[in-house]
């Protein structure tokens, strides 16, 4: 909680941080309230007054972003998609950091055999082709967003663990760790009360990367057609458009979801960068 407040405070200081934080906040709000403010159900087929299916209608006041080949409202689908993107992104980022942080702390602090084993595991995971692995996993299990979140978390914690480990290895040599030990601190005390607060900035930076990656990956999975069939996601909207072969005739159908992903992910990157520029004094000095 404290870390979150610090993150917000630091990021808010710079212009780019403020803009990206606002965009991200807006997306978050849309993700929460989107389904309630959506004018139509995303899977409803819409008909015009004459009772004809509204196929590929261009944007109008009734359908802000037009309709799909099946006569569904793109704008409503976009709002539902925001929820999916945020849910998948945030949960994956959280899971990634919780696992990666703990593995990194333990490996870096204890070293020796524990470290060797944990690092071999991350080596193997680093060799694992990310997207293909998730696709294989999804091809063998139920295609729902929880599987997607779990699969992404399973692969993504590797980088966080490595970054944290390297930092912990240098932190544990620091004098304040020895000081804590001489006052009777146990390993758990040292790890979670002395060292962990010092790697939190790194963990926050890696959360932003994980968030960005998770959102893009979820979209890619949706685009390849392996997404949760019961959930609307920005990726699956593009997939529907692509699969219908009509996308070249209906730019209102393909452009918005891509732009949404791009804007959201860009804001995540810039948030992370604004934070990092303050945290990393070397970078700040040179700017």
């Amino acid at each position: 909680m404290n870390t979150l407040m610090t993150f917000l405070r630091i990021t808010w200081k710079s212009t780019s941080g403020r803009i990206s934080l606002s965009i991200f906040g807006a997306c978050l709000v849309l993700a929460v309230i989107g389904p309630w403010i959506a004018p139509y159900s995303p899977s409803d087929r819409l008909y015009d007054d004459a009772g004809k299916l509204l196929r590929l209608s261009p944007p109008t006041w009734d359908n802000l972003l037009g309709t799909t080949v099946l006569g569904r409202d793109v704008f409503s689908q976009m709002l539902w998609g925001a929820r999916t993107a945020m849910l998948v992104g945030l949960l994956t980022a959280l899971g990634t950091v919780v696992i990666g942080l703990n593995f990194g702390l333990i490996a870096g602090y204890f070293g020796g055999r524990i470290d060797a084993i944990l690092m071999r595991i991350t080596d193997i995971l680093l060799g694992l082709p990310f997207l293909p692995f998730i696709i294989v996993l999804l091809s063998l299990t139920d295609r729902n967003i929880w599987t997607i979140i779990l699969a992404m978390t399973f692969v993504m914690w590797r980088s966080t663990a490595r970054i944290v480990r390297a930092e912990v290895m240098s932190l544990r040599q620091r004098q304040f760790v020895a000081s804590a030990r001489t006052t009777g601190a146990s390993d758990v005390d040292i790890l979670y009360r002395e060292i962990a607060p010092n790697v939190m900035p790194l963990a926050v930076t890696s959360i932003t990367f994980a968030l960005a990656w998770a959102i893009i990956t979820e979209a890619s999975i949706g685009f390849l057609g392996f997404g949760d069939p019961n959930v609307f996601s920005w990726g699956s909207i593009i997939y529907d458009a692509y699969a219908s072969q009509m996308m070249y005739r209906a730019p209102w159908w393909v452009v918005p979801p891509g732009v949404a992903i791009m804007v959201l992910v860009t804001s995540v990157y810039f948030m992370g960068r604004a934070y990092e520029e303050v945290i990393n004094p070397r970078l700040q000095e040179r700017m």
Binding site: R174, Q175, F176, A178, S179, A180, E194, P197, N198, M200
Partner: peptide
């Protein structure tokens, strides 16, 4: 300098 935890 080094024996105090900078985060506390």
């Amino acid at each position: 300098y080094g024996s105090l935890n900078p985060q506390q």
